[in-house]
Every structure is written in C-alpha cells, then in structure tokens.
Amino acid sequence: MSGELFKVTHTKIEAFRRCRKQYWFGYVSGLVWPAPGDPPAAIVGNGVHRAMQKLCDTGEPKDGWAELDAYLRMPKHAVAGPGTEGWALAFACYERGIEAHRAIVSEARWAELESWAPSKRLGITVRAKADRVDRLGPDRWQVVDWKTGRFDLDDVVDRQLDLVHLIVRTVRKLPRAATVRAVGWNLRTGEQRVRELTRDDARATMEYLGGMAQRMQAETEFLATPGVHCAFCNWRDRCEEAARVESEGLDWLEWDDGVEGLGADGVRGPA
C-alpha cells in the first residue's frame, strides 16, 4: 500500500453509492471530466451561495445583494437573468438568507470553510466545505450548509453534514467536550435538517468513510445503475445504459435477453 491517502469527498461517496459506472467515469477512468452544464437551478444555487458568503463576511445584506445581482446578469447565466423565474427565486432565497443570518447569534463566524481531515490509520483524507461556521459559545458550535432545491433527501443531507462536521472539528481543533449543531438549511422552503454531533459522532463518521474507501478501492466491476438520475449525469453521453434509458425508458428492465417481459396483468408477453 502506498503512503498516499485515499481522497474522500461527499460527491465521490455519493457517486459510488448511486452508480458504480458513474464513479468509474469520474474517479477511476482518468477521462477528462465533461464541462458541467448550467441549468437554471444550478445557477440559482451558486448565486445564492455566493451572496450568502458575502453576507457572512461583512454582515451587510447589500454586499450579498450586489454579488447575486452581478452574478445573475452575467451573459452565460441568462437563463436565470433579470425577468426570469430563476432571478425571482434567487432573490427570494437570498431574502430568507438575510433572515437566517439575523437569527444566528454567535461570538464569531466564518464563510466557506474548506479543508481536509486526514486519518493515516484508515488511509484516507476527507475533504469538505462548510458554507458557514459559527462559534455560539464556549464549546458550542454551529455549521450550516445552505440549500436552494425544491426538496432534500434526508439521508444525503445527513451524510453531507457529517463530513462538514469532521472539517470543523479538525480545522478549529475543537476540544472533546465541544458539541456541534449541524444544519442543512433550505432557503427555498425554510426547512432545517438538524443534527447534534459530538466527538464520538466524528469518530463514527471517519470509521464509516474508512470502510467505504476500502470498498471503493477494491471495486472491479463498476456496474451501471440506470435510473432517473441518468438524466442529470454529466457522463450520460458516453454511457450505453444512460442512452438506453433515454431512448427506451426503464421498461426494458422487465425484459431479459429475448424473453418477453411481464404484461400489465402480470403474465409473460406483450402488455
């Protein structure tokens, strides 16, 4: 085993869990990553995150507003530019972000805290970014991940919060007694997903990631898991299974090498 630590990120873990072939494309094949698309939802999310960073930096709502306005007026972001639904949504989210900022009372705060949490014993190093970190008081901290989507998958949010918790503990060298309130805060819906985390939780997260890293490095088949998520995969143009989903839908999963699938009445043969 080489001395280099295996790099772990939330995106990398989720790709492996979602579809082994997507993981192979992105992290094993060595292929150049496709240029990411710029759908309105992604532009809105990026713009709001940039605005919230400026707001956290200075505490002045006007700074975030100016950043969001300039970002959405960029020619390449025209699908979410002035007069669009994306524009209205972005500023509505930012208004809720201002309310959220004012509701957080802390001794100190940091925006976009990004770093690594290494474990030589497990052979991994974990990278994550916390959108906002606050010291609420002695041995009491809060970390926030801002969300702007229509809905959030609770288990995915929990795993992401566990990773940013590791980063906060590592970067700020939190003592054993310190507790961290980790929040997935959706600025579109106003919903908050809250986890109260301790040092023992951080240890458990690191052990889980170490186990996942072993599986990821031992994987040899990299089988595709076709589904609705194929439509959002940046590798879909190079993936046979994704192309099949796009052309045939998922009905083909009911067919097996020339054997007719189940009909609507559950009997083999055409529906």
Rank of each mutant, 00 (worst) to 15 (best):
G37C: 06
R268T: 13
D265F: 01
Q217H: 03
G266D: 05
F25D: 13
T198H: 02
D251G: 04
C56N: 11
T189M: 05
K7D: 13
G149I: 01
A182L: 13
E67T: 10
E248T: 09
D155W: 04
D69K: 07
C56V: 11
R96S: 11
D57N: 10
P34W: 15
A130F: 00
W116C: 06
D38N: 14
L5N: 13
M52K: 15
V133W: 00
L68V: 05
R135W: 00
G47E: 08
G211M: 00
H49Y: 02
A128L: 03
D69L: 01
A243V: 00
R102L: 08
T179M: 11
V32E: 12
V156P: 00
I124D: 06
V32P: 00
I98Q: 15
A182V: 07
V8G: 11
D154M: 06
Q160R: 07
W65V: 11
Y23L: 04
V144P: 04
K173M: 05
Y94K: 09
R140V: 05
A111K: 07
G258L: 06
E112D: 09
I124V: 14
T179A: 11
W255T: 15
R238M: 09
L161W: 03
L89N: 12
V183A: 04
Y94S: 10
L153F: 08
E67N: 06
G210K: 07
L153G: 03
R17Y: 00
L113R: 09
D152G: 05
A111C: 10
E14L: 12
G149K: 03
M74G: 15
V126P: 04
Y94T: 05
A202W: 00
G137H: 02
F6M: 09
K129S: 14
I167K: 11
R203H: 15
L187W: 00
Q192R: 15
A242K: 01
V144F: 08
R96F: 04
V79A: 11
I13R: 13
S247K: 14
S115W: 11
G86T: 01
V259D: 12
G149S: 14
V180N: 08
